[in-house]
Simulated assay, not measured.
Amino acid sequence: MISFIVGTTAELIKIAPVYHAIAERGTRPRIWFTAQHVDEVADVLTDLRLPEPDVWLVPRESAHNLETPAQVPGWATAVARTAWRRRVELKATLAEDGRPPLVMVHGDTFTTPYGAFIGKRVLGARVAHIEAGARSGSLLSPLPEELNRKIAAKLVDIHFAPTAREVHNLRTARGIVVDTEANTAIDAMRQAINEPIMPGLPDRFGLATLHRFELLSRPDKYREALEILREESRKLPVLYMAGAPEREKIERLGLHDLFDDSFQIRPKQRYLKFLPLIARAEYVVTDSGGLQEECGYLGTPCAIHRHRTERHVGIGQNIILTEMRGDTLRSFLADYPSRRGVSLMEKYHPSEVIADTLARLGFC
C-alpha cells in the first residue's frame, strides 16, 4: 500500500496528480495529514478531487495553521504521539494489499523529513520523495527548507528529482534516483489555468506575492519592495496577494497607505482561483519557489525577490533572481516584456513518470 504523508495545501496540490495517476492504475493511495495548514484544506481537497485525509496525525479537533517557528515543537510532539500510538494500525494499512509498503513525502516543509522518519523508522516502510534533490547551497538560505531536504535525503529510498540538476545533486544519495523531467506542479496546473478569474480586475495587471520569513523579518527590504511595486503600479495596476502574516506586518510597519486602486492588496486565493491570475498576469514578483516553477512552465516574466533559490526553472530566461536588490527589481520591471517565454505546459508529464516507476517496482 502507498500512503502520502503531507501537511500543507501546497503539498496537497503537488501530490494530487500523482495520487490520481496511481489510482488510475488500480491502487487507491492513503493520505495521512500532519495539519501544518488547516484553514483552506477542505476547499483544496474539493478543487483537486482528493478525498478527506484517511488519518490526521494531529488530532483534527486541535489542529490549526502552523504559522510561527515557536509552534513547531508542539506540532511535532502531537504528530509523534499520534504516529506512535497508531503505529500498529498504520503498519497494517500499509500491508493490507500485499504489496511492499511505501510512504511518499513531498518537497521541503517540516513534514518532509518528519514524514520520512515516521515512514522509515516508525513504520518500517520504504520512503519516496517527490521533488527531491533541490539545493540552494546554503543551509541558512532558505532556512529551514534546505535543512529539511538534506535530512529527508538520508532517509529516502526513491528520489523523484524534477530535473537533471537535482539528479546531479543526488549523485551520492543512497537508493534510486529518477529524473521526472519537471515538477508535478505542471500536472496540477493544467486543471487550473483555464478557470475563470475573479470579477472586477483590471484588464492588464502585474501580480505580486511576498510572504517569506527571509523578507518579512527585514523591514527595510520589505518596505523597499512594496515601495517599488507602488511606483510601478502608476504605470500598470499591481495586485498584491497577501495572507494574514503579511497584512499584520504591513499594519505594524505602517505601510497600509501604500495601497490604493492601482496598488491593490487582495486576499490570498486558493489554487484554482490563483493559477488563472498567474497565467493572465503581465509579470509576477514573488519570493515563492513554487510560483517560480509555475511561471517558468507558463513563460510568464517573473522576478524572484530572494537572496538565493534552490530552483532553477526559467532562471536566465523568463525569470530573474533579484538577490533582494531593489535596483535589480526595478531593472526587471522596466524591461519585463522582453522576458516573456514560451509555454511548456504540454511538454512534461512527471506524475506519469512517477506512477510508471512505482508500478515497475511493484508498489502499484
Score class of each variant (00 low, 15 high):
269 Q>T: 08
185 A>G: 15
242 A>P: 01
174 R>S: 15
249 K>I: 13
267 P>Q: 06
178 V>M: 15
192 A>K: 06
193 I>H: 13
258 L>C: 13
180 T>C: 15
247 R>C: 05
223 R>S: 09
181 E>R: 13
236 L>I: 08
266 R>W: 12
272 L>W: 14
209 T>V: 03
246 E>H: 03
212 R>E: 06
219 P>D: 00
206 G>A: 07
271 Y>P: 05
182 A>K: 03
190 R>A: 01
253 L>V: 07
259 F>K: 08
203 D>W: 07
173 A>K: 00
191 Q>I: 09
241 M>T: 11
271 Y>W: 07
228 I>D: 00
217 S>K: 07
231 E>V: 05
211 H>M: 02
189 M>V: 14
240 Y>N: 12
258 L>D: 05
219 P>L: 02
222 Y>H: 04
200 G>I: 04
219 P>A: 10
195 E>R: 14
265 I>V: 11
263 F>C: 00
263 F>Q: 03
257 D>G: 08
191 Q>C: 11
194 N>Y: 12
260 D>A: 00
248 E>C: 06
234 R>T: 01
205 F>M: 06
244 A>G: 12
234 R>F: 14
231 E>T: 05
242 A>Y: 06
242 A>N: 01
176 I>F: 14
190 R>G: 07
249 K>C: 05
227 E>F: 02
205 F>A: 09
187 D>T: 04
196 P>Y: 13
196 P>S: 05
179 D>W: 11
252 R>N: 09
224 E>P: 00
219 P>Y: 07
176 I>E: 15
204 R>C: 12
220 D>A: 08
226 L>C: 01
227 E>A: 07
185 A>N: 03
210 L>S: 05
180 T>F: 14
207 L>M: 10
221 K>G: 09
199 P>W: 06
236 L>K: 08
250 I>Q: 02
190 R>T: 10
263 F>V: 00
